[in-house]
Simulated scan of single mutants.
Amino acid sequence: MMHQSAATNDSKEAAKRTPFVEIQSVTKCFDDFCAVDDVNLTIGKGELFSILGGSGSGKTTLLRMLAGFERPDKGSILIDGQDITELPPYERPVNMMFQSYALFPHMTVTQNIAYGLKRDGVAKDEIADRVQAMLKLVQLEDFGKRKPSQLSGGQCQRVALARALVKKPKVLLLDEPTGALDKKLREQTQFEIANIQYELGITFIVVTHDQEEAMNMSDRIAVMNKGSFQQVGTPHQVYENPQTKYVADFIGGINLVDGVVKEPAGEGAWLIELPDFDMSVPVACAEQLQAGQAVTAAIRPEKLFVSTSTSAEPGYLKMPGILYDQGYFGRLSLFKVRLPSGHIITATAQNRVRTAHRAIDWDENVHLSFDPKSMMVLTK
């Protein structure tokens, strides 16, 4: 049984590497504003893929072109080898789950889920079987007779998901799928969506502005800004190895520091002079840099350690500072440290010890330490 499960997982992963949704040189402009600018993207079969970006980045316009609500000015969109660029929405092998859920308030849960199948003329027995299977999938078997007004936000979200999936689309488009939910329910629902997607093996394309949502749910993420993709990769790749300052700053917290390349430091690293840190740091970088080149060094807040002690882990670099500000968020604390240069650095720490007292007070002398391997070099 173990070998069968491993083989199934291998086949699913192989399918994800096979092009299934292809966006080829797609452009869409409105008057003199280019919302989507000559983008190319390939999404694998059975992949849970997120398009992540802020307001005005072009992500919603791209989703609408996939759904057929907008036509590209240039380029093509293919699904499973079929060019769907000119097909109307109702002829495309896709379905869409809207941010507002768009449930019919006068219909029961069962009627909402069955609506699309009835319009397609599916036989009553088959509709009943497929609706029941969807209710079981989204864990709403006892709620079939209720109206949307009698459901919680999370339950409405699952009804909308079931209604979108019951027609067995090749691709499901999700527009900000958990945006209307509170934080705790949003996190729970993200896992539920990911589990349902994995169980069904349908390609999901999620559009979201929520970095945590994209990181939690996705096999891969495309970070979008000003109509183009800044970076495409796994959540780990995008977070730990951002390719641009925009991606580094948009995904999670980041400290950006101006630096100058001094010389090669061996094993793919370069010695970067950081005046604000009053030190030079060997930083790994796959790019070919030049001595004297201006670059940006970046380090995540959780990679920095704040202490009143002058000691540090072997191999770590340290620098003095003064605690400028701090915030308590329950599971973690945030510290802003002013360096002697005046530069403010942000660090975070897990609150591992239960205490009602702050470990460090404002204006207290502290030391920051970090592993130089945690630092990145950004040239774009």
Results as ranks from 00 to 15, higher is better:
residue 75 G to L: 13
residue 82 Q to E: 14
residue 83 D to G: 06
residue 84 I to M: 01
residue 84 I to P: 00
residue 85 T to P: 05
residue 91 E to C: 02
residue 92 R to D: 01
residue 98 F to A: 05
residue 99 Q to N: 13
residue 99 Q to H: 13
residue 100 S to R: 14
residue 100 S to Y: 14
residue 107 M to C: 01
residue 109 V to F: 10
residue 110 T to V: 09
residue 112 N to E: 03
residue 114 A to P: 03
residue 115 Y to R: 03
residue 115 Y to Q: 03
residue 118 K to D: 13
residue 119 R to W: 06
residue 120 D to F: 12
residue 123 A to R: 12
residue 124 K to I: 03
residue 126 E to Q: 14
residue 128 A to M: 12
residue 130 R to C: 15
residue 131 V to C: 15
residue 131 V to L: 14
residue 133 A to P: 04
residue 135 L to D: 07
residue 138 V to P: 04
residue 140 L to D: 07
residue 140 L to W: 13
residue 140 L to N: 09
residue 147 K to N: 00
residue 148 P to F: 15
residue 150 Q to S: 11
residue 152 S to H: 08
residue 152 S to C: 04
residue 156 C to V: 00
residue 158 R to M: 12
residue 158 R to T: 07
residue 158 R to F: 13
residue 161 L to P: 02
residue 161 L to Y: 06
residue 163 R to D: 06
residue 167 K to T: 02
residue 167 K to G: 00
residue 168 K to M: 12
residue 171 V to W: 06
residue 171 V to P: 03
residue 178 T to A: 09
residue 178 T to F: 13
residue 185 L to S: 02
residue 186 R to V: 10
residue 188 Q to M: 06
residue 188 Q to E: 13
residue 189 T to K: 04
residue 190 Q to P: 04
residue 194 A to Y: 07
residue 195 N to A: 15
residue 196 I to Y: 14
residue 197 Q to Y: 07
residue 199 E to P: 07
residue 202 I to E: 08
residue 202 I to R: 12
